[in-house]
Design a protein around this nucleic acid. Structure first.
Length: 576
RNA sequence: GGUCUGGUAGUUUAGUUGGUUAGAAUGCUGCCCUGUCACGGCGGAGGUCGUGGGUUCGAGUCCCAUCCAGACCGCCA
């Protein structure tokens, strides 16, 4: 036994007790005749005390940061306490000191507010993980996983593992591939999701399946995207959309309750079409209003060509911003003109407190015209109306981005708020302008609404899918659908996606065949577990802090220095 | 594939219109200190200004290329 207690648990009540602790030296405070050392482990900090009469004083002075030591001594109440520390009422009068391992001086400070940059922290991730703020994230992640398992098990879901070495079916994201030595020239692919396997488990009669499992996608990365990431993958048989919605709304609520003590209200529901119309994207942040307003009709016919010729003219109302200076409005205009937003320009109307209206297009609009626009937008005195125009889809997207940006600037996206939402009625297909064909919006196994059966042949782009997303605070947390479970319907879907019968059979023969042997109606959902953790725990959409060993922007593991070249012999064996 | 931002002691950074010896904090280190807990005080060491070219009497600073990191767009069935 290296220790009798941890560094986080001793209190005043333990005074007089002789205990043994082990941990890392957080810091040495050498006051000359007194030496204090903070000993750290995962559970907390305990202060060690040495005075000059101690035969250990000299050894204590030699200790450096991050040395691993074992100490035995008597716990006693401190004469001067530290209210900031859970163990701040006590200290150990050290009687035995063993250095278990020395440490080089770490390249950055192992403290909550570290002096290390991201780069360095990733290279020395094992040191970074010693910092309480970082390891707490991972411990919370564990709590989230436990809460999920608890709920799923309670609902009768079975955890079944599915393979990582599978067949490449490059329909969506780019696959990671693994060369096969036993089958030279052939490759496995790593799963982008266990999608087809969970459906086969439904055919197999498993009824309720879930798995917290790794998925792999070889696409460019973001703050909220890693090449390998974790999904809570779920599937149920004999269910309709409403059953799935109820079941997993319950799961999200359970996790928030268990991990954060937060009671979420019932999730509102919104159609995909309304999301785009009112928020400019399919994952609206409902923590604030500032909905997009269609002002095309009220602004047209005043000889302002920009608006008259535009397919769409959208406005948002920024409350209390009428006093924005020229500098501020110019800066916002530059912001929307950046290539990432791509708007041509920005028009604004200031609704003065005195009832006056001032706009950047006064040449075309009288005070009365502006008043009408403001009334249409429900703008009050003191508000600022921001207007973008152009092609419909692009204008909605840009206005949506501007809305989010204004939300940030006005402090409306509060970290303590959680506003979940079901997004429903997604289109089944989306047109790919580059390849001149349809892509599945969700994935090719998604079924479509019975009411839209006619449209499949006449106007496939208008067909609505039985698909649904959970969105919280503008972050897509999960995505799911009721699946196709008949061979004929699945073949129809593949043909819509431009696959020949031969291609469909080659890539997806296994699931088409399975559908011929009594596949039950089924559907499911998959949650991005890393994102789920980042939202539940810190309400941020930055997942690297919740992954023990994440990869950087370019998919590199800075600690391992991977990916790397491989041994020439191995290459030869793999026929590379 | 594209846009933008950054790269200066171990670390985080300042560095003005190009001009003498590149400054600070922190960390490290030596001495002093009996109640610290971001301990304090006095001293010390520590820099190829990412790399390579160019302009110039002179470049951390200007120009070109390149590498690395980060954010975003495209991409992510």
């Amino acid at each position: 036994m290296y220790r009798t207690h941890t560094c986080g648990e001793l209190r005043k009540e333990n005074s007089g007790k002789t205990v043994t602790l082990a941990g890392w030296v957080q810091g040495v405070r050498d006051l000359g005749n007194l030496i204090f050392i903070d000993l750290r482990d995962r559970y907390g900090l305990t202060q060690l005390f040495f005075d000059k009469s101690s035969p250990l004083a000299e050894s204590a002075k030699q200790l450096g940061r991050e040395y691993v030591i074992q100490v035995t001594g008597i716990i006693r109440e401190r004469s001067s306490k530290n209210a900031q520390l859970e163990t701040g009422d006590i200290e150990m009068l050290v009687e035995q000191l063993t250095v278990l391992n020395e440490s080089k001086t770490p390249p950055f400070t192992i403290e909550d507010v570290t002096d290390g940059g991201d780069d360095l922290r990733m290279k020395y991730r094992y040191l970074d993980l010693r910092r309480a703020v970082v390891n707490k994230n991972l411990l919370h992640r564990h709590r989230v996983a436990q809460a999920v398992r608890e709920y799923m098990d309670g609902q009768g879901f079975a955890d079944v593992e599915t393979p990582f070495l599978i067949k490449s079916t490059p329909e969506g994201a780019r696959d990671f591939v693994v060369p096969s030595r036993l089958n030279l020239g052939s490759f496995y692919a790593l799963p982008q999701s266990p999608q087809t396997f969970k459906q086969l488990l439904m055919v197999a009669g498993f009824d309720r399946y879930y798995q917290i499992t790794r998925c792999f996608r070889d696409e460019d990365l973001r703050a909220d995207r890693q090449p390998e990431f974790t999904q809570i993958d779920c599937e149920m048989a004999f269910v309709e959309q409403e059953d799935v919605l109820q079941m997993f709304e319950g799961m999200v609520k359970h996790v928030f309750k268990k991990v954060r003590g937060i009671e979420l209200e019932d999730f509102p529901r919104m159609s995909y079409a309304d999301c785009l119309k009112y928020y400019g994207n399919d994952k609206p942040d409902l923590r604030f209003g500032m909905k997009l307003i269609d002002v095309k009709d009220v602004v047209s016919g005043k000889n302002f060509k920009v608006f008259d010729d535009a397919e769409a003219v959208n406005a948002i109302v920024a409350e209390g911003c009428s006093e924005y200076t020229r500098k501020q409005t110019d800066e916002l205009t530059e912001w929307v003109k950046r290539p990432q937003i791509g708007a041509g320009g920005l028009i604004f109307i200031k609704c003065g407190f005195d009832g006056s209206y001032k706009s950047s297009v006064d040449k075309f609009y009288s005070a009365d015209d502006l008043k009408k626009i403001a009334e249409h937008c429900n703008a009050k005195a003191g508000d600022l109306i921001l207007i973008l125009s152009g092609v419909l889809a692009k204008t909605r997207k840009a206005t949506g981005e501007l809305r989010l940006e204004m939300g940030v600037r006005l402090g409306l996206r509060k970290v303590e708020d959680y506003k979940p939402l079901w997004v429903l009625d997604f289109p089944l297909l989306e047109w790919d302008e580059d390849d001149k064909r349809f892509n599945a919006m969700h994935h090719p196994f998604t079924s479509w609404k019975k009411e839209d059966n006619e449209l499949i042949n006449t106007n496939p782009g208008a067909v609505r899918a039985n698909a649904y997303d959970v969105v919280i605070n503008g972050v897509e947390l999960s995505s799911g659908s009721i699946r196709i479970h008949s061979r004929a319907q699945q073949e129809k879907m593949f043909s819509l996606l431009g696959l020949t019968d031969e291609e469909a059979q080659y890539k997806f023969g296994f699931i088409l065949n399975a559908f011929e042997y009594g596949a039950p109606p089924h559907g499911g959902i998959a949650f991005g577990f890393d994102r789920f953790c980042s939202i539940v725990i810190s309400n941020l959409d930055y997942i690297r802090d919740f992954i023990a060993f994440p990869k950087n922007n370019s998919g590199r593991d800075m600690m391992l220095d991977a990916p790397s070249d491989i041994d020439a012999r191995l290459k030869k064996e793999l026929g590379l």
